[in-house]
Amino acid sequence: MQGFQLEIFPEGSAFIQRAIQIWQQLAATAIQERGRFMVALAGGSTPKKLYAALAETDGIPWQNIWLIWGDERYVPPDHPDSNYRMVRQALLERVGIPAEQVLPMPTQAGDPAQDASQYEAQLKQVFRQESSGDWPQLDLVLLGIGEDGHTASLFPGTEALQVQDRWVTVGQKDGEPRLTLTYPVLNQATQVVFLVTGANKAPILKEVLTTEAHLPCQGVNPRGRLLWLLDAAAAAQLPLQMALRKA
């Protein structure tokens, strides 16, 4: 991969505090420049820890923050597997963010393609000021990776990887639909941060950061900055010269 930053922290509070610092720095700049901070959220256990910590952090200007979702399982919003449900419990129920600034992906139509189109139309209304040509410009995109190299709901060998003319499309995992932002949207962001923790991610992380692009997460190459924020366990198999680029 090209043009990325790498920071490695011990597992625990230092990792989360660095993520919070990035959030606060980007928020301050975006709000000063345009009056609002636009973030795409990730699902997963590591982002959940970040959201819970953000809820306990003083001084975050929630009145000026807008949240969208990078992807969502096609389940009802109260389903245990719902990314929205996770974010609601970890963060939304604990902070004073205006309801109209929280934009979860719809999953109620019974037609994933219809819901993807609806979400895209909603985002186009919200982002009419923060757009570059045909694409929105998110201030921050949070992502994770799976052990198969997927990110958001962009899975290996699926049609969603080829979508270049939509903001939102339907991804597939084991025959089950998901909604996901597309590469053109992810790659228009000012800052993309991959949050990766745990020894189970070490093999795929080594492959991602040391080989030519062939995995979905390697298709994320934003016009802005790309940061891989790792804990020591996830970084354990990286080459020494790369691992030395730790914070």
Rank of each mutant, 00 (worst) to 15 (best):
E176S: 12
E72T: 10
L26G: 09
K124W: 11
E33W: 09
T151A: 06
G219C: 05
P184M: 09
Q241V: 12
Q137R: 13
P104D: 06
A90T: 03
W135N: 00
L195R: 03
A42V: 00
T190C: 12
D111Q: 13
L181N: 01
A113I: 04
Y51R: 02
I22K: 05
A152I: 00
W66P: 07
F15M: 04
Q2E: 13
I60W: 09
W135L: 12
R85E: 07
S117C: 08
G43E: 07
A40H: 05
Q172T: 13
R34K: 10
Q218P: 11
A152V: 00
L227V: 10
V75E: 03
E11N: 12
A121Q: 15
V192D: 01
L195M: 15
D231V: 01
L195E: 01
N187H: 09
Q118C: 08
N200Y: 05
A55M: 11
G175Y: 03
L154R: 06
Q241T: 13
T151V: 09
V141L: 00
F4K: 10
L161V: 08
F9I: 06
Q21W: 05
R18W: 06
R34G: 07
V126M: 11
Q118Y: 03
D134P: 04
E93Q: 15
P80S: 08
A232M: 06
I22H: 07
W135C: 01
T107P: 00
G219A: 08
S132Q: 11
S131K: 13
I22R: 08
